[in-house]
Nucleic acid binder design. Structure first.
Lengths: 166, 166
DNA sequence: AATTGATATGTTATATTGTAACAAATTAAC
DNA sequence: GTTAATTTGTTACAATATAACATATCAATT
């Protein structure tokens, strides 16, 4: 049995990378902050695919480019990218993904596929509105919201279904 | 300025502890699994209050009772207690809390107060229903759901409001 | 161009969180 | 009582993250 570890073939990933980098560059100019080469390299490495990436994997991957890189190098870049909203931390994986929606910067739903490791970010406005209402009911002042769902994505469950004989 | 780190005075915490231990004991009998003394002690230590507790803090706290305790001692007990649904892992804190709702065992909303460190578990049925619908829309098969909100709880924001002069 | 202040990076060391692997002990079932 | 399964002890280490301080870079002003 083969297992899908890819996104649908309709997905042209270079579009994702280009859009993210262009947008980040533009926003940094607007905000008067510096997208230094280390920060840009880390952002590009995170955007290698739609998997969540671990800090120490980033460290290994950046070493050919930045031979002096140490853990702090990566964590500082990650802190910057998170502060700017360019990436998300996936709490349940201790890992990081690129943010797919830099314009609205809503906090969103993360669908984490255990099979292919892709993480999909969804708007889920209905869920978010219900959540905001519930937080009001609780008189809770939210600073950050993380909704992380672990399971099997559509693509993987279809692949499994069609490849396992009855 | 004083800062509240307590629950409202209406809260009688020994009720929480007793209920949790009684229920856990009963469920272990029903399920034919062993609530050994280590496991029970860890569960009690988690229920010391409504804060999320870190594994290594539990290790320090259990040492007077179990002098041979090592990290694995704690992590095994935590694994057991999670498998039985007696505790939750708080992903965004790398910490653990007692589950307040052993009967229904719904996955719930965690409200994490940065001020007093208490973690409140809420049913939030509307949110959960919206979430289930959204997951159906996405054709995502969920195995676990974590909704973790960081912020300031009702009690702390009231305390702050009344104690900071205008 | 030199000075300054702010920001970013280099570097070392260490803290924190979590697991693997195998031996020994305990418990439950026969 | 013997056996099989489960639990615990123990050692070692892997993986994740931060503290602290030195150095370098950059941009704005003298």
């Amino acid at each position: 049995m083969s297992i899908s570890t890819e996104l649908p073939s309709t997905h042209n990933h270079s579009n994702c990378i280009n859009a993210a980098l262009t947008m980040a560059t533009q926003l940094c100019v607007e905000r008067g902050v510096q997208l230094t080469s280390i920060r840009q390299q880390v952002l590009e490495l995170i955007w290698t695919n739609h998997h969540a990436v671990k800090a120490y994997d980033l460290l290994e991957r950046i070493k050919p480019l930045q031979s002096a890189a140490k853990p702090a190098t990566i964590y500082r870049a990650l802190d910057f990218l998170m502060a700017q909203g360019f990436i998300h931390r996936v709490e349940s994986l201790n890992a990081f993904i690129g943010c797919c929606d830099l314009k609205t910067a809503h906090e969103q739903l993360l669908l984490i596929c255990k099979q292919c490791k892709n993480v999909e970010e969804r708007h889920a406005d209905v869920v978010m509105q219900a959540l905001v209402q519930e937080l009001q009911n609780a008189n809770f002042i939210a600073h950050s919201k993380a909704i992380e769902i672990q399971g099997i994505c559509e693509n993987c469950s279809q692949t499994l279904n069609t490849e396992i004989p009855a």
